[in-house]
Design a protein around this nucleic acid. Structure first.
Length: 267
DNA sequence: AGCTCACCCTGGACGC
DNA sequence: TGCGTCCAGGGTGAGC
């Protein structure tokens, strides 16, 4: 489940693609292309000029200003393979590059997709703030929480408010901040909002430092797994001891998402 | 407007 | 071993 640290890790791993030219594109599953504002053929012969990230979206730019925006959904992978290698299952799009490599878009569950657009700002205009930016602080977050009755965990997953937090890092951030995930957002005290902001930044940075969390599917652009799964304190650890107080971690479904927390350390 | 929930999809885990 | 069932969840949109 690629969240901000995983997409950032993929982005960083693929920077060697900048400057390469797209020789050809193969579309095995046209449904995986969610926007046909540009046609695949428009990208042939184009040079990749930048690869960036916004929230959980991965953005490729060509030197003539055409964009490919990818979202990996639950099980999406973007990675390089030698040209001509036999395609694996669920590879939906292939970009042939001029260095004898191919970029594969593979997604078993197909919750992800690829947008071929002229201007990514239009499709990303409702994306919330980047949580690692300086502008994301308690002064910014506090008004977003006021008078909202929704669970703080649910609010953190709302991409229109904050871009890039998913289920794993939301649970880990709330643990670090000592806040129960089912607390109503509006009930957080100023000190808790401050702790939550710091915790979000800390767990996202740690996730990036460990090159993402690989529970099953995640890998970077060179098929390398991440390490942050070894540092998870509550996510996926129901009934295992809280690292701080040794009480069993509880799993509870909140708005349809499995959530993990320590009932002793999180208030 | 805020909120909840069903839906999309497949592979893997689990029970019988 | 094999079959059926359930679960994982990001984003969207319907409905309250």
């Amino acid at each position: 489940m690629p969240e901000l640290p995983e997409v950032e890790t993929i982005k960083e791993s693929l920077q060697g693609m900048v400057g390469l030219t797209i020789d050809d594109i193969k579309v095995m599953k046209p449904e995986y292309i969610r926007s046909w504002e540009n046609r695949p053929a428009d990208y042939i012969g184009q040079r990749i000029s930048a690869i960036s990230r916004r929230g959980k979206f991965l953005i490729f730019e060509t030197d003539t200003g055409r964009y490919m925006v990818a979202h990996l959904g639950m099980s999406g992978r973007v990675y390089l393979e030698p040209r001509g290698k036999e395609l694996q299952k669920h590879v939906h799009i292939v970009f042939e590059l001029d260095n004898e490599l191919e970029l594969w878009f593979q997604d078993a569950r197909r919750f992800g997709g690829l947008w071929l657009v002229k201007d990514p700002r239009i499709m990303l205009k409702d994306m919330g703030i980047e949580p690692l930016s300086r502008n994301f602080n308690s002064r910014y977050l506090k008004p977003l929480l006021s008078n909202r009755r929704v669970a703080i965990k649910t609010l953190l997953l709302n991409q229109h408010l904050i871009g890039g937090i998913g289920n794993i890092y939301a649970d880990e951030a709330l643990y670090e901040a000592g806040i129960r995930p089912d607390r109503s957002a509006g009930s957080l005290e100023p000190g808790e909002v401050h702790r939550l902001v710091q915790a979000i930044k800390q767990v996202l940075r740690s996730g990036i430092d460990q090159r993402g969390t690989t529970l099953r599917d995640f890998q970077d652009g060179y098929k390398q797994k991440g390490e942050f799964q070894d540092y998870l304190k509550v996510y996926g650890r129901q009934d295992l001891p809280c690292p701080r107080c040794q009480q069993p971690v509880v799993r509870q479904v909140i708005n349809g998402r499995s959530s993990h927390f320590c009932p002793s350390c999180q208030k």
